[in-house]
Design a binder for these strands. Structure first.
Length: 875
RNA sequence: GCUCCGAUGGUGAAAUUGGUAGACACUGGAGACUUAAAAUCUCCCGCCGCAAGGCGUGCCGGUUCGAUUCCGGCUCGGAGCACCA
C-alpha cells in the first residue's frame, strides 16, 4: 500500500477492476438483488464536444444514487446515450466544413471516454444514439401510426423567416429581431407543418399532474399545470355585414372571438384582429395606410417573450361588427399583438377589465366602460389597478340584466344567452397548443412522407422504414441542404409508382428525447420496445435540469400516453420520481473598453485581493497584474468565459475529488457555486481518508476487518455512539437525496475516528468500515482501493456489493440528556436530566438553574416543556 | 409582459413536524513543526460591546410561550415562455 494518496493510480486500479468484472451490466430479474429493480436515469446529453460541469453534477447524483441503492439490495440500471441530432452540429459543420455526422460521432467518442474517467456505474451495453437509423426508425414508425390515427395532422404554422439568407430561423437564431448571420429584420411566415395533437391529451396530462405524480417537485407540477392552462370561457360571434363602395352587401359574416371573461362582455368598446384576418385583408384593399400597417405587423419574431414586451400598436379598419348582446356597433382594429394562429385570430377589447386592452384604449383614446365592481374599491379610468381584472372579487355592474352577478354566475348567464341566439357557447380551452414537430433542417429524423404529382402527399410504407438520412451533407446556412440532395429527394410514389420527391423537413429533437429512456431497456430489439421495457419501466428516478421542467417532460409524458394507447406499454406515466438539479455557477470577471465592450477573464486567470479580514477587495489579472471588474456569480458559459473544464479537474485532483466537491458544495436541487479552494478542501479530505487508512491498515487487517463490534473500552463506546448517531442522520439524508449533508457526515465521522485512536481495534474497524461504505457512493475509487488494502474485501467481498451500514440502536443508548432552558423564548441556560425524568422534575430542575434564575422575578406565568428538547419559562 | 422558484456569517451551506440559528467546509487570523517554503497539526473566527449584555436568517407587518420555518405586503436575483438542448 502506498503511503501517499495517488488519485491517478487509485482510479486506474478501481476502473480496470470494474471493467474486468463488467460490474455495471444490468440484467433483468437478477437474483443477486432481492429488492427488485430500480431504474435511475439522467437526462440525455447533447454531444457538444466535451463534458461540462453540469454533466458532472448530473451523473454524479445519478451515480451516488446507483451505488447507495445497489448496496441496499436493488437491481439498479443507470444507462447513457446521446441526443445526437440538433442545430449545434449544423453550426459546427458550417464553421469547420465537416459533415454534422462526423463531428457528432467524434464528440460522442470523446465524451464517452470522459464519462469512463469519472467512474460512473453506466451499463454501456445499452447505449443509444439518436442519429442512428436503428433508433430514429422508430420515430418514423410512430409518426406514421400517429398520422394514421389522426394524432398527427398538417396545418400552417408561423415561423421566423430571414429574407436575406432565405431560411427559417430557430428562435435562438433571432437576436433583437434580426437574423444572427445576415442581420436582416426577421419576418413572420406561414408554412405548412405537421402537428401532434397534444391538446387532445390536455385533460389527462393535467389530471395526472394532480393525482399521479407525488414524486415530482411541487414547483414542476405547478409549472406544468399552468403551462397546460385549462380555462372555461365562451367562444362567440360578432355578426357583421360588409358593404362594397356602391353600398351593396358583399359579405354577411360572423367574426368569432374567444374570451375567458364573458362576464365583462358588456364592456366591449372595440375589437382587434390579426393582420392576416379576413376583415383586415378586406379593409386593406381600399386603405393603403392600413395595408402598410398590416405589412408592419408581419415583421418581427414569433418569440412569445418578444411579443409580450413589444409596443402594442393598432390601426382602425373602418369596419364595424355588431355586439351580439347589445346590438351596438363596435369598431374593428388591427392589432400587432393578435396572432392569426391562436384561436380565431380576433379578440374582444374590454379596456376596463383587461390590462392590455386598458393600455391600448389609453393610447388610442378609445372609450373605457366599467362593467365590474368590487366591494370597497373605487374605479377610475386614470390608471390601471389590479382589482379591475380580478374575477375572484368581481360583481357585474352597468350590464343590464347581468348586474349583481358573480363571475361564475355571469359566465353561465352570458353563455346561455349566446347559445339562445345561436351566436356562441361555453368552451373549455387550454393555453397548451398542439406540438409542431416539423423542422426545416437537415440534421434530424426525416419525416417519412413522399410528395407525388398525382397522389399528393403519401406516407412512406412501414416496410420501407427507415428513411435513412444521408450523413455526408455540409449545410451552408441558406436552408436545408436536403433540398439539393438528388439521391435523397428522388423516389417513387408508393401508391402509383411514378417518380416523386421526398419530404425534406425533419423532426423536432424533442421527439428523440420523448422516449429514448425506453429504448435503453430494449437494446438491439427489432421492436420499438420489448418485454424488457415492462420490467424496467416506469422509471423510478429521473434526474435533469430544471430548464426541462415543462417542455421536455410534457412531451415525454404525452408520448408515453400515445404508446400506451397503441398498446406498446402498460403504464400511464413514465417518471415516478423526478429530481431537478440546479445549475453550476462561477464568478465572472471582465474589463470594459471605452465603447462599453466587455472582455471576460476566466476565474483561473484572476487573483483576488483581500482585506485584513479576508474579504475580497478587488481582482487583478494574473497575466498583467492590472485590475479587472468582479461581475458576479453566473451560470458557467462560453460567453462569460467562466467555465471550468472537468477534464482538467480530474487530471489535477482525480475524479473522486471532483465528485466529492460537486456533491458537498450544495444540495442537488440548488445552484452550485464553483470554488477552487473548495476543490482543494475536498482533495485535502481524501488525503486524510487515505492517511487514516494507511495508519490503521495493520491493526484492522490483523483482526480480520470486522464490520460490527461490541465496544470493550469507554473510548470505543464513545466512538460507536458518535458514529452511529452521525450514521442515523446520514441515512435519513441519503434517502431524501440531500447528498451535501451525507458528505459532511463523512467528514464528521473522520474527525471522530481521528480523535479516537485509543479505541479498541474492533470498534475502529467497524467505524472505518461504516465510514468507507458511507463515502463509497460519492468517492467510489478511493473507497474501493482502501476496502481492499485493509482486508475488508478479502473478508466481505467488493465494497460495491457489500451491505449498506446499519444503525445499531444499542450504540446510541444514553441515560442522560441535555435540555435547553429559555426565558420568554430566549436561551438562558441548559440542564442535564435523566432520560426518564418526568415533566415536573424537569421543570423543577430548570427553575432551580442558577443562570436562569436571574431572569425570573416572582412566579412564572407558564412553563412549557418540550420533551427531550427544551423548557420555555414565560414570566 | 406572463408562469414558477429562491434569498441564512467574509464565502458555500446546516437546522427532519414551529422548539439550542450558523453543523460540515472554504477564506482569513494566531501558533507549532521546518534553515526556509510547501505540506501537516493545534487554536480562534456572525455583528456591536472592555464586559454584562444587546442585535441578527433580504425588507415591512401579523399569528405564537416560541418563527429561518406559518400568513399578508414589498425588494432583489434566477429559470421557462412553445424552432437552443
Amino acid at each position: 500500500m502506498q503511503d501517499k494518496y495517488s488519485p491517478a493510480d487509485v482510479e486506474k486500479a478501481a476502473q480496470s477492476h470494474w471493467k474486468a468484472i463488467d460490474a455495471y451490466k444490468a440484467v433483468e430479474h437478477d437474483p443477486r438483488f432481492p429488492k427488485g429493480k430500480y431504474y435511475a436515469c439522467s437526462m440525455l446529453p447533447y454531444p457538444s464536444g466535451k463534458l461540462h460541469m453540469g454533466h458532472v453534477r448530473n451523473y454524479t447524483i445519478n451515480d451516488v444514487m446507483y451505488r447507495y441503492l445497489r448496496m441496499n439490495g436493488y437491481n439498479v440500471l443507470m444507462p447513457m446515450g446521446w441526443d445526437a441530432f440538433g442545430m449545434p452540429a449544423e453550426n459546427a459543420a458550417m464553421a469547420n466544413n465537416v459533415p454534422p455526422a462526423q463531428w457528432t460521432y467524434s464528440n460522442i467518442a470523446h465524451m464517452r471516454e470522459q464519462m469512463e474517467s469519472m467512474g460512473l456505474a453506466i451499463d454501456w451495453s445499452r447505449e443509444m444514439t439518436a442519429c442512428k437509423p436503428e433508433y430514429y426508425k422508430w420515430n418514423q414508425w410512430m409518426f406514421l401510426k400517429m398520422l394514421e390515427k389522426g394524432i398527427i395532422y398538417k396545418k400552417t404554422g408561423t415561423v421566423n423567416w430571414d429574407p436575406i439568407d432565405q431560411t427559417v430561423l430557430a428562435n435562438e437564431q433571432v437576436v433583437d429581431g434580426r437574423g444572427w448571420r445576415s442581420g436582416a429584420l426577421i419576418e413572420k411566415r406561414e408554412i405548412p407543418m405537421y402537428y401532434a395533437r397534444i391538446t387532445d391529451y390536455a385533460d389527462e396530462l393535467l389530471a395526472y399532474v394532480d393525482d399521479k405524480l407525488p414524486g415530482w417537485p411541487e414547483r414542476v407540477r405547478t409549472m406544468q399545470t399552468n403551462w397546460i392552462g385549462k380555462s372555461t370561457g365562451v367562444r362567440f360571434a360578432f355578426p357583421h355585414q360588409i358593404k362594397g363602395a356602391d353600398g351593396q352587401l358583399i359579405q354577411d359574416g360572423k367574426m368569432y372571438v374567444f374570451t375567458t371573461r364573458p362576464d365583462t362582455v358588456m364592456g366591449v368598446t372595440f375589437c382587434a384582429v390579426a393582420a392576416e384576418h379576413p376583415l383586415a385583408i378586406h379593409a386593406a384593399q381600399t386603405n393603403p395606410e392600413l395595408a402598410a400597417f398590416n405589412a408592419e405587423c408581419k415583421l418581427g419574431s414569433v418569440i412569445e417573450a418578444d411579443m409580450a414586451t413589444m409596443e402594442k400598436k393598432g390601426m382602425p379598419t373602418g369596419l364595424f361588427v355588431t355586439h351580439p348582446l347589445t346590438g351596438e356597433q363596435v369598431e374593428v382594429w388591427v392589432g400587432n399583438y393578435v396572432l392569426i394562429t391562436y384561436g380565431d385570430g380576433a379578440v374582444m377589447g374590454v379596456p376596463a377589465h383587461d390590462e392590455r386592452d386598458f393600455a391600448f384604449a389609453k393610447k388610442y383614446k378609445l372609450p373605457i366602460k366599467q362593467v365590474i365592481k368590487a366591494e370597497g374599491k373605487e374605479f377610475s379610468t386614470d390608471a390601471w389597478q389590479e382589482w379591475y381584472g380580478d374575477k375572484d372579487i368581481s360583481i357585474v355592474t352597468n350590464s343590464g340584466k347581468y348586474d349583481g352577478l358573480r363571475y361564475a354566475e355571469a359566465v353561465d348567464a352570458v353563455a346561455a344567452d349566446m347559445q339562445a341566439k345561436g351566436l356562441g357557447e361555453k368552451k373549455i380551452t387550454f393555453r397548451l397548443r398542439d406540438w409542431g414537430i416539423s423542422r426545416q433542417r437537415y440534421w434530424g429524423t426525416p419525416i417519412p412522407m413522399i410528395h407525388c404529382g398525382d397522389c399528393g402527399v403519401v406516407p412512406v410504407p412501414e416496410k420501407d422504414l427507415p428513411v435513412v438520412l444521408p450523413e455526408d451533407c455540409v449545410p451552408d446556412g441558406t436552408g436545408n441542404p436536403l433540398n439539393k440532395y438528388e439521391a435523397f429527394l428522388k423516389c417513387d410514389c408508393p401508391q402509383c409508382g411514378k417518380p416523386a420527391r421526398r419530404e425534406t423537413d425533419t423532426m423536432d429533437t424533442f421527439v428523440d428525447s420523448s422516449w429514448y429512456y425506453m429504448r435503453y431497456t430494449s437494446p438491439g430489439s427489432d421492436k420499438m420496445v420489448d418485454e424488457r421495457n415492462d420490467y424496467w419501466m416506469p422509471m423510478d428516478q429521473y434526474i435533469g435540469g430544471i430548464e426541462h421542467a415543462v417542455m421536455h417532460l410534457l412531451y415525454a409524458r404525452f408520448w408515453t400516453k400515445i404508446m400506451r394507447d397503441f398498446g406498446l406499454v402498460k403504464f400511464d406515466e413514465p417518471f415516478v420520481n423526478l429530481l431537478t438539479q440546479g445549475m453550476v455557477l462561477n464568478e465572472t470577471y471582465y474589463r470594459e473598453d471605452a465603447a462599453g465592450k466587455k472582455t471576460w477573464f476566466n476565474p483561473a486567470d484572476v487573483d483576488l485581493t483581500l482585506d485584513d479580514k479576508g474579504r475580497p477587495q478587488g481582482a487583478v489579472s494574473k497575466a498583467d497584474g492590472q485590475p479587472v471588474n468582479i461581475g458576479g456569480t453566473e451560470k458557467m458559459s462560453k460567453s462569460k468565459n467562466n467555465g471550468i473544464d472537468p477534464q482538467a479537474q480530474i487530471e489535477q485532483y482525480g475524479a473522486d475529488t471532483a465528485r466529492l466537491f460537486t456533491m458537498f458544495a450544495s444540495p442537488p436541487e440548488q445552484t452550485l457555486e464553483w470554488s477552487g479552494s473548495g476543490v482543494e478542501g475536498a482533495n485535502r479530505f481524501l488525503r486524510r481518508v487515505w492517511g487514516f487508512g494507511y495508519a490503521q491498515r495493520d491493526a484492522i487487517a490483523a483482526i480480520g476487518a470486522p464490520l460490527t463490534a461490541v465496544a470493550t473500552t469507554d473510548a470505543g463506546k464513545t466512538l460507536r455512539r458518535e458514529l452511529h448517531k452521525v450514521l442515523q442522520q446520514a441515512d435519513y439524508d441519503v434517502k431524501r437525496i440531500q447528498y451535501n449533508t451525507v458528505v459532511s457526515a463523512c467528514m464528521k465521522m473522520l474527525n471522530t475516528l481521528e480523535s479516537a485512536k485509543d479505541a479498541d481495534a474492533a470498534s475502529l474497524s467497524e467505524g472505518y468500515s461504516i465510514f468507507l461504505r458511507l463515502l463509497n457512493p460519492v468517492a467510489p475509487h478511493i473507497t474501493h482501493v482502501l476496502w481492499e488494502e485493509l482486508g475488508y474485501a478479502k473478508a466481505h467481498g467488493d465494497i460495491l456489493n457489500v451491505q449498506w451500514p446499519q444503525v445499531d440502536p444499542a450504540a446510541l443508548e444514553q441515560s442522560e440528556i441535555e435540555m435547553m432552558i429559555q426565558v420568554n423564548g430566549k436561551l438562558r441556560g441548559s440542564v442535564v436530566v435523566a432520560k426518564t425524568a418526568d415533566k415536573a422534575s424537569i421543570e423543577a430542575a430548570a427553575l432551580a438553574n442558577e443562570a436562569v434564575q436571574k431572569f425570573i422575578e416572582g412566579t412564572p406565568k407558564k412553563v412549557i416543556v418540550v420533551p427531550g428538547k427544551l423548557i420555555n419559562i414565560v414570566v
